[in-house]
């Protein structure tokens, strides 16, 4: 197993490199259509201003040289300064905001996989039963609802009408544990509800497949009871595709948290990225996307590792 994890870790390096290349190319593309300089110097910029900015950013060098320089900076933790404010380091801006986003996404995934699994198993036990059919309709509707709409509903119902929680704002974990928890609770539920539904649906259908398999029939013929049949025989096999789908959802949730954060007035990565786009603040966007990309790579790694635990074939493959 250690060998497998080591191998997966190594395999993450090219992925991270690819993410870096994509991020870097964004700046190259923007410079190619001249939009960077215009952003700083304003429309109708004088050629002097433009060339000054370009020199400043080192845009004169050949692209591979710039990439290596940029990559060197990135690896040493320097993501440059904001294009619009030389005193604000991109790394600093991200550091201020990333923990709110990570908290929400992380907690939403925990909610998603646990509740989703319970509901998926419940539905699979009696396929076609009342519970199964009602769960599948609810799940289909929730999958169709974007997190930010669910968020607005929750915010209105639980925070505003009932007054149980604050509708907006984020309290860092370092300030207060309960404050942190209550501030991320609603956003996490909003983002996590579709995750629950996705996990539920996938687990239900892969459980149904597993329960149709010959090995489950054989286990029944051995006198294995209902509960161990589900827990020990069907579930581990059904979890493999479920984890795959969960991994995809995790990546999507990292993108979708932006909208949920805005509903709850949380200054996380979402706000940072959106303002960067509206201001065409390329250095901030670059840094932000790079960090988000790396988080995705880490999530992928975790998914791969859990595969190894679930699927002996993957783990033992030489």
């Amino acid at each position: 197993m250690a060998k497998y994890i080591g191998f997966r870790l190594l395999a993450t390096i090219p992925l991270m490199f690819a993410i870096a290349v994509v991020t870097f190319l964004i700046a190259v593309a923007m410079e190619a259509n001249g939009s960077i300089a215009i952003q700083v110097c304003g429309e109708g910029a004088t050629p002097e201003c433009v060339s000054a900015v370009e020199e400043n950013l080192g845009l004169d060098d050949p692209i591979p040289v710039r990439f290596i320089q940029w990559l060197g900076d990135v690896v040493s933790g320097d993501l440059g300064a904001s294009l619009l404010d030389e005193n604000a380091s991109v790394a600093g801006l991200i550091g201020e905001r990333i923990w709110a986003s990570v908290s929400i996404v992380g907690f939403s995934l925990v909610i998603g996989i646990t509740i989703g699994m319970v509901m998926g198993i419940m539905a699979a036990i009696r396929p076609g039963g009342l519970l199964d059919r009602s769960l599948s309709i609810v799940a289909a509707s929730v999958i169709a609802a974007p997190g930010f709409i669910i968020g607005m509903m929750l915010s209105w119902g639980i925070a505003i009408e009932l007054g149980w929680l604050d509708p907006i704002g984020y309290t860092p974990l370092s300030e207060s544990v309960t404050g942190w928890f209550t501030s991320i609770l609603l956003p996490s539920i909003a983002l996590g509800m579709p995750t629950i539904a996705i996990v539920q649906r996938q687990l239900r259908s892969s459980m149904a497949n597993a329960l149709q398999s010959r090995y489950v029939l054989a286990a029944r013929a051995r006198g294995v009871g209902r509960a161990p049949l589900i827990r020990r025989h069907a579930l581990p096999n059904a979890m493999v595709p479920t984890i795959t789908v969960f991994g995809f959802r995790a990546a999507a949730a990292i993108g979708l948290t932006t909208a949920v954060e805005i509903v709850f007035g949380i200054r996380g990565m979402g706000e940072l990225l959106v303002t960067a786009i509206l201001n065409r603040n390329v250095t901030v966007l670059q840094g932000g996307m790079l960090i988000v990309g790396l988080v995705v790579a880490v999530v992928n790694l975790l998914v791969d590792i859990s595969y190894g635990f679930l699927n002996p074939k993957v783990r033992l493959a030489k």
Partner: peptide, 8 residues
């Protein structure tokens, strides 16, 4: 149709 399985 996959609505039937070993447990149903």
């Amino acid at each position: 149709d996959s609505s039937n399985n070993a447990l149903s």
